[in-house]
Design a protein around this nucleic acid. Structure first.
Lengths: 205, 205
DNA sequence: GAGCCTGCGATTGTCTACAATCGGCCAGCG
DNA sequence: CGCTGGCCGATTGTAGACAATCGCAGGCTC
């Protein structure tokens, strides 16, 4: 055996594809067939099938029956405008749930994400920056242990791809993204819950 | 052949199970194994597997690895309080999208749902009333042809099960539910969009 | 008597093969 | 020359079998 035929087989594939799509490495419209994915990950179609369905429900892929799946485009602006505030509400709620319980282990996790993001900013690696951006926010929900909210959040973010309107920015200001998240983390460390909540909401565009 | 090996095989199973769970025919905690479902619908495990995954992401089922799926309980109150207004926002947005385009065919569809609901109220069939209630609201989103919103709405409603707090009501007032939806439909027929939107929001508890 | 370990049953995870379906191309006809 | 019909490749949908994993019961040890 190579690694682990454990129940994580499909999960690894799902996480990999998800990051590639959200990070922009796989362009919208890119076609993905079950066969291709199965070969790429050294698995069978049965293994990648649940992944495709999952990503489709998260808005990352669009499936046409008997015609293969493709990386979904960003949702139309009207939809985005509708679900951005929803995302704000959910993340703020999760943060409020956990704010008083946050400890060193939590901050350490965010620090690691920020370190990765900083390095990516310095080498102008837009894809990794976007990935870290999402990981930072996702960590809030995972920490809250609210599986239901996480599922809903994934469905929202998969359609927003908000992190890529930042592509418009000049790459020289990429470090701004890092700075913003650094501020957020410091607010998490502080004792002013309301201030942290306000900062978080403000950062979600 | 028995029925139809058409592409609707899994869709029929999904719709059937969804209605049974949302209608309350399958109680929370009820265990469902792939084998049982496959036998019940005369299909193979491969056919019911996508259904289970889909319903799990919609919050109707909870899956434990290698241990089977079970009908999920309603989400905790804090979560419900968070997502009720979200649902209100989404349905109102969809209604606003389609309000000016509504025609006889649309009203006819709602009339049929209401007819079913009325009959169910008269024979005190709580399950069917709940099912029609959801169908009435779902029709708004389907009419808007916003697949993304429908997916999100499903994920919300699956966790709310709001329609079952009405179980608390005395069965003698079941017809109130019908009356409320009748009012809604008449508002849809009218020309006052704002009034219709307000009515819709008011009805979503 | 309590705790751990082993063995077993049940269930899902994965794989391979087959069937049904869709889109596009090409021939044939008007 | 345009259109319609049917064929063909590609892709997913479905099926059944095998393997890996989990929970639990029973017995053993301390």
């Amino acid at each position: 055996m190579k690694t682990k035929t454990k129940p994580a087989a499909t999960e690894i594939i799902a996480a990999t594809l998800r990051d590639e799509i959200l990070g922009g490495r796989l362009p919208a419209g890119q076609r993905l067939t079950e066969m291709e994915l199965a070969q790429r990950f050294g698995a069978s179609r049965a293994a990648v099938r649940p992944v495709i369905q999952q990503l489709a429900m998260q808005g990352l892929l669009v499936c046409k029956t008997n015609c293969g799946a493709a990386v979904a485009p960003e949702a139309p602006k009207a939809i985005r405008d509708l679900i951005v505030p929803i995302r704000r509400t959910i993340e703020a709620y999760a943060l409020q749930l956990i704010f008083s319980e946050l400890g060193p282990a939590d901050f350490q996790r965010w620090e690691e994400t920020l370190a990765r993001m900083k390095a990516a900013c310095e080498r102008q690696d837009l894809h990794t920056v976007a990935e870290c951006d999402l990981a930072f926010h996702r960590a809030i929900l995972e920490r809250a242990s609210q599986g239901d909210l996480l599922v809903i959040w994934e469905a929202l973010v998969g359609r927003l791809r908000s992190h890529f309107r930042r592509t418009q920015r000049q790459l020289t200001r990429l470090m701004d993204i890092y700075d913003e998240h650094r501020e957020l983390l410091e607010a998490f460390r502080g004792s002013d819950e309301d201030a942290a909540l306000r900062s978080l909401k403000a950062k979600i565009a």
